[in-house]
Design a protein around this nucleic acid. Structure first.
Lengths: 254, 254
DNA sequence: TAGTGGTCTAGACCACGCC
DNA sequence: GCGTGGTCTAGACCACTAT
């Protein structure tokens, strides 16, 4: 009887992932105020180790993740401290999940106003990544989306997906989170994304949607998404409304 | 005799920092071609461990650093691979050291054309960080610099340093790397920098220098620099020439 | 000198991809 | 099934800060 119970336990929780669980626990306990003193100082590591019953390795993995997210910082020889209020008016560049999910986190709603999809040969693409060599007969799924943030014009996205990797994209995915759609199948899970951030005059195709004159400033992100196995999945240009788009990141200096 | 020799060895190398040494070794051996096969695949971890005589922990610290820098990526159950040619026309957001050093890395030269410095009360600052509370009698060192990249207009920087932290800034530091100047003294070593990236119309004060009409696009970075002990050191706005500034980063998806 | 975080060793088991 | 990378434990020593 007990033996069967243990087996079921294991089946229900195949992945432990102590670190992620621990991160959430610590955040919860920080927010409830039970973990920090008046100097915003956390208990020392040996203390936290016994509190959460993990080894130093796991604890420090969690603390590192917290510091990357900007929740805490550590001072050699002194302690670990909680940082003051986070900015909530900007999008974290290192966010988890897709842009829609990140927007939800900061209490905003991202929707797609219009989307179009078309299969084209590589030669007809408006731009290509520099680091990838295509065959002439490769096919791309060309997608253009106009997206709203809290019902205001936010983003025009021109993207290309390699048809050799993803056969087709259902229309409903275009109007929701494409990121979430890809994550559903293990074969199309994204591993890393190269991003180049710059500013450019707003292109003509976007000016009407943005309700701004062409040539206005815009924040432009070019990105190339790769699967977990290193294969190129997609590349895109995203023109953001400069009055609304702010990207946030924390740079660690070593 | 041997005993004395060992003592001297230790005195000469107080810090081991195997990880950083290992990272450099691996990069060197990748570039010389002796570490990768035709698929750009590195030897497996046990192999690398014995090759460099480190444990798995140290090896994986190094491999993680390499993947954050974009040199490699790892595929679960398959192996570690070297990435194709890096982009060299953009600045890595996660670069080590100051901007001048990063520019040297990609073969470009950053210089300061003009710089001005002035001590002001907090109330006269053109902008302030939202997360810090000043006293009314706090003093700031206000610095404005116009900087060139390969002799072309690149950046206007408006920054404020807390005089309570850094008494004064010598003029020669303004024309070189301020980052390097701060790193010299242990008391002013930077721990982390909050960065907000956006796009704005070029302000009037910068248009003449940039040789562009006011209102042209510009890439704007606001940052707040903190010492290793968490104390605020400085905050600034940096307006970049949109035709030249490209920022690069790699986003890991977990 | 005491207490803190930073780094490294040694070994184990798990999850994934491929043959 | 086997080899790969991903995670976790247990313990040690080092470097930094403050007293």
């Amino acid at each position: 009887m007990e033996y069967v119970f243990v087996l079921e336990e294991n089946l229900e929780m195949p992945k432990k992932m102590d670190t992620n669980v621990l991160v959430k626990k610590i955040i919860t306990e920080i927010q409830s105020g039970e973990l920090v003193d008046q100097d915003l100082k956390l208990p020392a590591e040996p203390n936290l180790m016994s509190r959460y019953e993990v080894t130093r390795y796991t604890l420090r993995q969690a603390l590192k993740q917290l510091s990357v997210m900007g929740y805490t910082y550590q001072v050699h020889g002194v302690g670990t401290f909680v940082r003051h209020q986070q900015t909530v008016d900007s999008v974290a560049l290192e966010h988890e999940g897709g842009l829609s999910a990140e927007m939800e986190r900061i209490g905003r709603k991202l929707t797609t106003k219009t989307a179009s999809e078309k299969i084209i040969p590589v030669s007809e693409a408006l731009f290509l990544p520099k680091t990838h060599h295509f065959q002439n007969d490769d096919k791309l799924i060309q997608v253009r989306r106009f997206r709203l943030l809290d019902d205001k014009p936010y983003l025009m996205e021109q993207s290309y997906y390699l048809q050799s990797v993803i056969d087709s994209i259902p229309e409903e995915a275009l109007y929701g989170s494409l990121f979430k759609y890809f994550e559903q199948s293990r074969k199309t899970q994204i591993g890393f994304i190269d991003q180049t951030i710059m500013s450019e005059p707003l292109p003509d195709e976007a000016s009407e949607f943005m309700e701004m004159p062409a040539g206005s400033p815009s924040l432009l992100i070019r990105d190339e998404s790769y699967l977990a196995n290193g294969e190129l999945l997609a590349f895109s240009k995203q023109y953001y409304n400069y009055q609304q788009a702010k990207l946030f990141m924390i740079k660690k200096v070593h």
